[in-house]
Amino acid sequence: MARALTAAAAPVRGELPVSVARIVAVPDTREDHAGTLLPVLSGAGPLALRRLRAGRGPAPAEVALVGAMAAPLGGDRIAVTARVEAGARLRVTSVAATVSLPGPQPGPAWYDVELTVAAGATLEWLPEPVVAAAGSHLQLTTLITLEAGARLRYREEQILGRQHDWTVHGRPGRLTSRLTVRQAGRLILDQQSDLGPGAPGWDGPAVLAGHRATGQLLTVGLPFTEPVPAALPVLAALPGERESPGEGQGAVALTLPGADARLLLAVAPDGLVLRRLLTQPADPS
């Protein structure tokens, strides 16, 4: 279970402590109660956790990730883990985008996320985007472990640079990420991306082709609405296709190996368009 943290932390483990924020959600089994309790809700380092809503009845318990100080900065090692036990429902959002900034010394920052969802439990992990400011390098590692019958909605949005970075520096920062998902012991998704200055070909026609935002929405065991092609003018209208010319955006729904797992993958010119492409009707705004 600690493999993502261990693997990602290996290069400099021991030099700097890893701050690990933790969330555990369990079903409320007291008589006359139904819903979800959060027996563990502990922030760490720059990550504070706030309970937004108690989980009563079928409604999930809601937690917000709060960046309590400027982070991640180069050299930071932060981590968050969430475990949702059988029968519990948890929704995690964040109050603001996570802006990766350069640190006092050159070198990357590490951000590890480890999510575990039991059979019959539901996790919605819908944070705001990660934004790579010029000169920063963030290594984002996410390991998701699903038991058979676990339900998940997981959103990941990556924005290459703020407007400021493009105007002043003419370039974004670098985002290196890995998303690994196991379902009932089977590997169903393992994906690395390396975007931004220093990553070969990242801005070229095989990877982002000038788009500044990319992201994905992974849905397992929950309702999934296919994107409507007409509403998603993909890149540009190509000869022989029925879509109308668009603003340089695209999304596609991919059926993953494994049970009832769909990946909505998108590239977009900016974060607003990306969010529109990755929003499901059932999601909270």
Partner: peptide, 17 residues
Amino acid sequence: WPLPAASAPLLDLFAER
């Protein structure tokens, strides 16, 4: 786990289209 898993979003989009 140590094996590369490098991906390119547009190659996936292109293939489906």
